[in-house]
Nucleic acid binder design. Sequence first.
DNA 1: AGCGCAATCTTGTCACTGACAAGTTTTACG
DNA 2: CGTAAAACTTGTCAGTGACAAGATTGCGCT
Lengths: 186, 186
Amino acid sequence: MTDTRAYHHGDLRRALLAAALEAVEEVGPAALSLRDLARRAGVSHAAPAHHFGDKAGLLTALAAQGFDLLAQTLTEADDDLLEAGVAYVDFAVTRRAYFEVMFRPELYRADDAELIAARGRAGTALRSGVAALSGGGAPADTDRDSLAAWSIAHGFATLWLAGALPDRVGDNPREAARAVLRRLST
Amino acid sequence: MTDTRAYHHGDLRRALLAAALEAVEEVGPAALSLRDLARRAGVSHAAPAHHFGDKAGLLTALAAQGFDLLAQTLTEADDDLLEAGVAYVDFAVTRRAYFEVMFRPELYRADDAELIAARGRAGTALRSGVAALSGGGAPADTDRDSLAAWSIAHGFATLWLAGALPDRVGDNPREAARAVLRRLST
DNA sequence: AGCGCAATCTTGTCACTGACAAGTTTTACG
DNA sequence: CGTAAAACTTGTCAGTGACAAGATTGCGCT
């Protein structure tokens, strides 16, 4: 593990993604620097290009990974729509770097096959929670319900991350999200 | 008007902001280049710095202008909460460049006095619409109601801009937003 | 075992960018 | 009319992404 002199890093791709997560959390996805990632991983400035092609390639990999994690998170809370919404907000806050990349398609290759597949899985998980709750309603209603649920959760998460919410909301995202998301069902 | 040789541009600050709006719509706020703006305005590469200090200064001015426009838009639709929500989404879509800068505080100076004032005006306009509708409810309810209304409108707008919504939603943002926002009140 | 080849990584370079410094031209004001 | 400030230019520097070419390493094949 300590042979930092090895010519081959061994697990550079993974190391770069991990470094990217850190860097995105520190400076945001746009200000990400491939050369900085290379420095963090202890390799030359051109090494990242070999694994990801370019910056967009790296962010595409990050986004795809993020959609998979989100799909997994949503599936776990699938039986309770309110808790699924809370989980969505929680994902955005605790895995901020993923979330911020995922919804900035101008930074990555939105036509990447793996990415599209992962995004599809997340979308399915999202819709299935709403379908389970609304029971035997018409499909058109499920469409609109899931869109509304997604919108309110996504909006709250985005506003939270942007620091746009007033101070009185507090500093507990799960709690605050629950209070707001409840307004949808009543 | 055709004396393009004049040493003094005459209205460079305004011209740069207009060029910035165009550029942001084309490449996004992060990929904005001050040197490109200078070229669009026909001035030297260092001219923008004189008016805005740096890139963050320019985006701060854009964001403040955006919050003022949003406040104005919301005030005009103040009597109908649903229409105010639709107006919010419409603002995001038709004045995309403003909207995208406004909610990316890491790109500008969030402690700027003018910006804070403009953001405050927008927030007041937003809350007053909800307060008018909910009538004599408790203030705490108004807080949560306005947060919920803001979240769902903001979420839908953000997802629309990110191209994350499924195709079946259609291509008319106002119509689609109305259908989704209605779910909040029922 | 060892040979060759592909994968991995490095060094070098180029155009572009933001920021800063110093100089030049114009306007405004007393 | 003259001088100081405002508006803009030229020049420069370090950092960045992308690309090209070369060095090193590991792996499959015989």
